[in-house]
Write a protein that binds this DNA or RNA. Structure first.
Lengths: 256, 256
DNA sequence: CGGAGTATTGATTCACATCAACCTAAGTGG
DNA sequence: CCACTTAGGTTGATGTGAATCAATACTCCG
């Protein structure tokens, strides 16, 4: 597991030691203050001035979730919102019979609870170890009311999410299995790049089942498609990740 | 282009005559002012006080689109945002080879252009005749900057859209054809109810192909499912719509 | 009346799901 | 340190729901 991600042997993930996760250095993810936060430039906090940021920081509590730990379930009342600083979350909805749709994976810099609504509209689990800034929802809303910048930024983030969701609808409704996997890898590469990684190797903390539940497939189909792409040297399967060997080919398959 | 936007074709739908559309009376949809607007209580405008509403109204221009007319295409630069007062729009994305995913249908009270971004992220067509309030995007953004209420309301609308999008991902990724159709009808009934209709009869301005492109099916499959539900007396096929005869059964099929 | 667009229905095919066997790596505990 | 377990992954054989291909019907409109 950790073998491919560890940059320094001693540190546990998300502990303030340098570490590659999602192709992103998580150095100082558990920074005591926002100043040294690794995601301050990509996250919603970037809307805040130094002074505001200090007040904001005072509202937050640093929390860590272990792999597979549940942050909250769909329908729970929304006590908190979170800003992910390190690790990967899955957000999902379940049908009564247990079928699952993962509506998104969250990476460092992503915000959980954009809707600010009273109840969570989906469930959230940590896939690997996750660190996050936790805010009491009431405090957060009060802060937003006093800082219009932040509302602008939240709205921007929400509409960005909406755009991603719409793109994902195209994928789910109109693409074949191979296209789904290719498009997913390209989308993930894009996100990782924006987080500062070179992103030829896509670290995948999630299982084949997670991928399947995100892409509207079964785990066997995901496995078969991955094997096929690897056989054709479009990608290379590495422990806990995939390396893109032929991006052109991938784009040809997953063209949008 | 401008030819089709003239407001007063007497007797046409959306012209101030009472007319059932989406189970919603569109009386006075083309009201000269917001006071008499049929959707003022359900739309984003509801966030505004009388005084603000007056200024808002001054920014808007009433426009009409004929059936099948295109409002804008994905990638166009976003000159305007719209508030639908009457009729039905389809919002969609196309893949290079022509496959289409309809990401949503907009009904009276719905807002087009929530993201306020510089380019449209999807294309939009009028399905039947549509009236809308059109705002210059720049003017609208300025107005929003001066009226924080409105930003709150827009953010709320955006996160509501996001929730709908996530629900639709579940439908597209994890539901069988019959469940898709049932869930769609129930969702549509819910929206129409919120617009004030009794909504046992669901008027469907869109074709089977539109439905298919929204539900991730083919038009034949939609037709077969509708026929099957009709054969079982769960629904009744009526001209330009479907009447729900056995809501319990429909909920059993489309349970979420 | 004729034609275009839309809808229905049937026959057939196929992409992906399902069912099942087996493999590997990483614990866990005696 | 090794037997055993568990979770994840791969691969093969078979089944099936929806797509595709195709024919026909309906409805509106000029």
């Amino acid at each position: 597991m950790a073998d491919l991600n560890d940059v320094d042997a001693t540190g546990s993930p998300c502990s303030g030691e340098a570490r590659v996760l999602g192709q992103t250095r998580c150095r100082a993810a558990q920074a005591a203050s926002c100043d040294s936060c690794g995601v301050k430039d990509v996250s919603v906090c970037s809307a805040l001035e130094a002074v505001e940021l200090e007040a904001f920081n005072a509202l937050s509590e640093k929390v860590i979730f272990r792999s597979k730990e549940t942050l909250f379930l769909q329908g729970d009342d929304a006590r908190a919102v979170y800003n992910v600083t390190c690790g990967t979350l899955r957000l999902y909805k379940l049908l009564p019979d247990g079928r699952r749709q993962i509506v998104g994976f969250l990476l460092p810099g992503d915000f959980v609870g954009l809707s600010l609504s009273e109840r969570y509209g989906f469930s959230a689990d940590a896939i690997d170890q996750v660190s996050a800034c936790r805010f009491d929802r009431g405090d957060f809303i009060d802060f937003v009311d006093r800082n219009p910048h932040l509302l602008r930024r939240l709205h921007q983030a929400a509409t960005h999410e909406l755009t991603l969701a719409q793109d994902h609808m195209v994928l789910l409704g109109r693409r074949a299995a191979e296209e789904k996997v290719a498009a997913f890898l390209l989308a993930m590469r894009g996100r990782l790049r924006r987080l500062g990684g070179s992103a030829v190797t896509i670290p995948l903390a999630m299982t084949r089942q997670d991928l399947a539940d995100h892409l509207g497939l079964t785990l066997e189909t995901v496995s078969r498609v991955v094997s096929k792409l690897a056989r054709e040297k479009t990608i290379l399967v590495v422990p806990d990740g995939l390396r893109i060997m032929d991006a052109g080919r991938l784009e040809q398959i997953g063209a949008s």
